[in-house]
Design a protein around this nucleic acid. Structure first.
Lengths: 360, 360
DNA sequence: TTCTCTTATGACACCGATGACATGACACCG
DNA sequence: CGGTGTCATGTCATCGGTGTCATAAGAGAA
């Protein structure tokens, strides 16, 4: 591998002059520059980042840790995609910053995060981002040196800067929109409460009901989320069957996520109930493979992954450049409701009332 | 940031001894070792990879380029997941090699591959892997220095070592299994021929028919793949409708991929045809979100992404260690047929005849 | 004409590790 | 008791760039 000395020799100049041509940090004569560029081309010279970095003490690297890439071998969940979109947002936002993004993967095993962080520190990354698969609490090893770190789609109890989806607002906006559409009996097949999004969305649901003057009815809320295990379909079936037999049955089922909504479609069809004419369905996640492919297309709430990635990168860059006006606490990012044909308008919507809703 | 000199000073030894403790490449006295380890802990010392690398001329880095992470904003395709599984296989295979995997992303823009390769070369990666989203031909810039490179899920016309799915065999095995199940009229809703897998799978289909003594009938084969554009459902509808009206209609529809199969389920249901009792459906990809969630679960062919990743990493490591017994040409990796309930057994299968088929 | 001032370039040390080699202290051997 | 080998450790140069400073050559200004 050619070095800057080789180039200098061929071009008949000093190494420092070659360095100047490469970095453009001082004027170089036209003839000299051309000679250097010719030599570089002849030798296929590629400068060594390691050497450059030693002297300049700046790596230009951002380390990103995710489990997206190698999820557990049984990905019943729509595994990985969320993280991908977050990473996409981060990339987009970092593209013009001159930083190089290094991505490492935990293989879904949280314990692998520590050695990966260590590897990154050895490479002297200027900042770290940890991206989680779904909104959750994490406990990462402390970064003893001052390297800034951001959590995306997760949080810890050390107050590390975090970027989170606004689950409360998302569910709230969806339910508010359903109420606007004339629905009063709104069934809710929730996520299990252990995951962070569960309680937040339930609170959003309740808040929207209250704002709409509707009483919260426990008969309309049930957790059917078995973490992808078998029996979930049966649990869903029973819950739906029970709710539909109520004297005042729900006109719409909100599902914990789009995957559950996919199951609910199947169950309702098997029961002979037509979607949406007899009963409406709404999801959460805007998981497009499902939401857009289903017939009828699914009304759901977008999880603003890309936007979260952008925010994460921005906040990190702010920390790196040492801006003191650092926000405290987590950054909440809300996503719009995607209004599609799986929900009937029981009465015409008053469009002026709608916020952050995209009609498709 | 503390250096090895700081550690040496605190521990009262020479930097070289600290180095020995870190690398364990020469015996160190117990007391000395402990003093050094204490100093390292006190200072939160993390060795600099850049410095180490300069001296040793080995980076321990493998560069991976993918478009998985940031696909186009309109991922109608099951975007990204294939690449993820490939990367997962690569990671698994590289985990114990002492190499660190650096992942970079093209954002789906092929032109970005060149600067990314350059960045990797600056970091002196010891090997490069390019992973494509689906089986396709690519044209990457030539790597002028000798850094080894592997193509995964793609190939070029320069003969760069490539790892590819065995599409011919996959479709062949599926159709052979259908024939074993007693199907004689096998409809095939193909992928568009422009993509690499299309013709290969069609050949596999024809070969299996021939081996089963069944005449190839063009009335049973139609391309309904519009690259995710609108109208695909209508095209599918028409093709299916036409085939079902034939005097000798198909008893099973093979679909170009699982996504298409999902649509076909919907169409057949709308037509009032029950799957699988009245007509069977098979897919391709084993795209689990679809194949396992659909009711009935979908018979399909696995695309062995993880295995491809493993093979890619192995072949790369072989190249790096300079083994001369390098295979020529692409490595083909076949995936098993996943036999699920979407296909009826018209006659009981003779299990002893089945190869690489998983019954679920 | 002489004195700045800019432009263009080189000399040299240094970043933080490690490879090659040297050295000192013992242990074991005949 | 000298020779030889092993263990434990230190010295020094070096990897490939770049920061700092020096210097030479012209361009204008006084």
């Amino acid at each position: 591998m050619a070095t800057i000395y080789d180039v200098a020799r061929i071009a008949g100049v000093s190494p420092k002059t070659v360095s100047r041509v490469l970095n453009g940090d001082a004027p170089v004569g036209k003839a000299t520059r051309e000679a250097v560029e010719l030599a570089i081309a002849q030798l296929d010279y590629v400068p060594s980042n390691a050497a450059r970095m030693m002297r300049s003490q700046r790596s230009g690297l951002i380390g990103l840790i995710t489990g997206a890439i190698s999820m557990s071998p049984e990905p019943t969940q729509p595994a990985g995609l969320p993280e991908l979109f977050i990473v996409q947002g981060i990339q987009k936002s970092l593209a013009n910053s001159g930083m190089t993004l290094m991505i490492a993967d935990t293989g879904g095993v949280v314990e692998k995060a520590a050695p990966l962080i260590d590897t990154f520190l050895r490479h002297r990354v200027e900042g770290l981002i940890y991206v989680a698969e779904y909104h959750q609490k994490v406990a990462l090893p402390v970064i003893s040196d001052g390297t800034p770190m951001i959590l995306a789609n997760c949080f810890d109890d050390r107050g590390t800067p975090a970027i989170l989806p606004d689950d409360w607002r998302g569910q709230h906006d969806l339910v508010a929109r359903l109420i606007t559409a004339g629905h009063r009996r709104i069934g809710y097949l929730t996520l299990r409460p252990e995951i962070a999004a569960g309680p937040l969305r339930l609170d959003g649901y309740r808040a929207a009901l209250q704002a709409g003057g509707i009483t919260y009815d426990t008969a309309l809320v049930e957790n059917c989320d078995l973490e992808g295990r078998d029996g979930e379909t049966q649990l869903l079936w029973e819950a739906i069957d029970r709710m539909l037999r109520l004297s005042s049955p729900p006109t719409v089922f909100c599902c914990g996520n789009d995957k559950m909504a996919l199951r609910v479609y199947g169950i309702l069809r098997s029961m002979g109930r037509k979607v949406p004419t007899e009963v409406s369905v709404a999801g959460y996640d805007n998981y497009r493979v499902i939401a857009e492919t289903l017939y009828p297309p699914l009304t759901t709430v977008d999880l603003p992954y890309t936007a979260m990635g952008v925010r994460a990168a921005q906040r990190l860059m702010a920390m790196i450049s040492g801006e003191t006006r650092e926000e405290k606490g987590p950054t909440l990012v809300a996503g719009p409701v995607y209004w599609r044909d799986s929900v009937t308008e029981l009465r015409p919507a008053n469009v002026s009332l709608l916020k952050s809703v995209r009609e498709e």
